[in-house]
C-alpha cells in the first residue's frame, strides 16, 4: 500500500496514495494504523484526497482505527474525502461516528 506519514504540529497525517481501499489492501491499512496507535500517536488524521473508491473492508479498517483511538482518548479524524467515497460514510451513517473535515487545514488550524 502506498502510504505517507507526515508530522504536522501534534498531528500525524497519514496520506493514502492508493486510489482504492478494498479487501486487497484494507488489512495492511488496519495494521499500519494499529502500529501508529500502539507507537503512541494520539492525534491521527487520515488524508483521503487520492482515494476514489472504498469498500466495506476499507470502512471497517478506518472504523477499527477510530475505535482503538477512542479507547485511548485520542483523536482520529478523516480529511479531504471525495464525494463518492463520502456517500459510503453517509449511507452507513458513519458520518455520525467519524470526525470528518473537508480540508486538512481545518483540523490543523483548529
Amino acid at each position: 500500500m502506498n502510504l505517507n506519514l507526515e508530522k504536522i504540529n501534534e498531528f500525524s497525517v497519514l496520506t493514502i496514495h492508493d486510489e482504492r481501499i478494498d479487501a486487497h489492501n484494507s488489512a495492511e491499512l488496519k495494521e499500519y494504523i494499529l502500529q501508529m496507535i500502539e507507537g503512541g500517536e494520539s492525534h491521527i488524521i487520515i488524508q483521503l484526497e487520492h482515494v476514489r473508491f472504498i469498500d466495506s473492508s476499507g470502512l471497517g479498517a478506518l472504523l477499527f482505527g477510530h475505535k482503538h483511538m477512542v479507547a485511548k482518548s485520542g483523536q482520529f479524524a478523516l480529511a479531504n474525502i471525495q464525494q463518492q467515497v463520502l456517500s459510503m460514510f453517509e449511507l452507513t451513517r458513519l458520518t455520525r461516528v467519524f470526525e470528518i473535515y473537508t480540508d486538512i487545514s481545518e483540523v490543523i488550524t483548529n
Binding site: S56, S57, G60, L63, K67, T92, V97
Partner: peptide, 11 residues
Amino acid sequence: HPEESGMGLFF
C-alpha cells in the same frame, strides 16, 4: 453500534 465487518451485503 457499527461493526468493522458485515456491511458488504448491505451495500
